[in-house]
């Protein structure tokens, strides 16, 4: 049985020498160069990089959903498989992956069911309220907007009190205003739980606003171009968006991204 959703022990994510090459009809496509990456327990790290550079592959390897060709993944000393089997890992996918035949409450409760945790209606309803969806418990996903569905998907992730939270562009499919709103509303929920978060995003401002470190990846095969610390206090607020610290961090990330793309173009 996994831990209850109150403050789990922080778990460090450590990827060592991880690489990946896909083999398809058109031959071998190297996606990740051998790479080391560490996310301190309880912190949030954002991966940014050009489209198709292998960010999501790296995240799937960290989740144990994809195997790496070389290297190891250790989550607090355990393999991803062990954490998944304990229900201590949760993934928010690019698509919300809500099951259309289950109600909102049923979808949030599904996280606990899949993690073999006892049903807890009180906790599920509380989470639904905390992601701002109170009153929609009985609705099916088809009746919810894109933003509401993403909130529900995050609530499903949090329902198991995960020690490791992997976010694969969870707000990529919603509009900018909704994304900004979700960026401010949702992170405090997982930060309260001490979960270690590895996220992939295309939005530089989202990466800076949500994380403690931003790692910029090069074009395929991906390698680390820059590792930038974010020196903003927690909790992050809307006011911070206009501070000099926030802007200067964004500028550094964008500069690193531009370098990554220029070097990729030169390589082509």
């Amino acid at each position: 049985m996994g831990p209850e959703p109150s403050a789990p022990v922080p778990v460090e994510i450590r990827l060592t020498g991880v690489s990946k090459t896909f083999t398809g009809a058109r031959g071998h496509v190297p996606v990740l160069s051998p790479m080391d990456l560490t996310v301190a327990g309880g912190s949030t790290l954002a991966l940014v990089g050009p489209s198709g550079c292998g960010k999501s592959t790296l995240l799937r390897i960290a989740a144990g959903l994809e195997s790496s060709d070389t290297g190891t993944v250790a989550l607090g000393g355990d393999s991803p498989d062990i954490l998944r089997a304990r229900g201590a890992l949760a993934v928010a996918f690019q698509e919300d992956a809500l099951l259309p035949w289950r109600t909102l409450q049923g979808n949030v409760a599904l996280g606990r069911r899949l993690a073999r945790l006892p049903g807890d209606t009180g906790l599920v309803r509380d989470l639904i309220a905390r992601v701002g969806l109170a009153g929609f418990e009985g609705h099916r996903p088809g009746a919810l907007s894109g933003g509401m569905r993403q909130r529900a998907a995050i609530a499903r992730c949090l329902a198991t009190g995960p020690q490791v939270l992997l976010l694969d562009e969870p707000f990529g499919a919603v509009d900018e205003l909704t994304r900004r709103r979700l960026n401010l509303d949702l992170p405090p929920l997982w930060q309260q739980t001490n979960a270690t978060v590895l996220m992939v995003t295309h939005s530089v401002s989202e990466a800076v606003l949500l994380s403690d470190r931003v790692v910029v990846l090069s074009n395929r095969p991906a390698s680390v171009v820059a590792d930038i610390s974010v020196a903003l206090d927690r909790p992050r607020t809307a006011k911070m968006l206009s501070t000099a610290d926030f802007r200067s961090t964004i500028a550094r990330v964008e500069q690193a991204l531009a370098q990554a793309e220029t070097s990729a173009l030169a390589a082509q």
Partner: peptide
């Protein structure tokens, strides 16, 4: 069955049986 639903089940360390009962059975209805 959409791949992401199966990924969801796998992300909780569950196997084919769980995918069958929780996702595939209803998706195939």
């Amino acid at each position: 069955t959409p791949r992401v639903w199966l990924d969801l089940v796998a992300s909780y360390g569950r196997g084919r049986w769980s995918a069958l009962t929780n996702v595939r059975a209803m998706a195939a209805t």
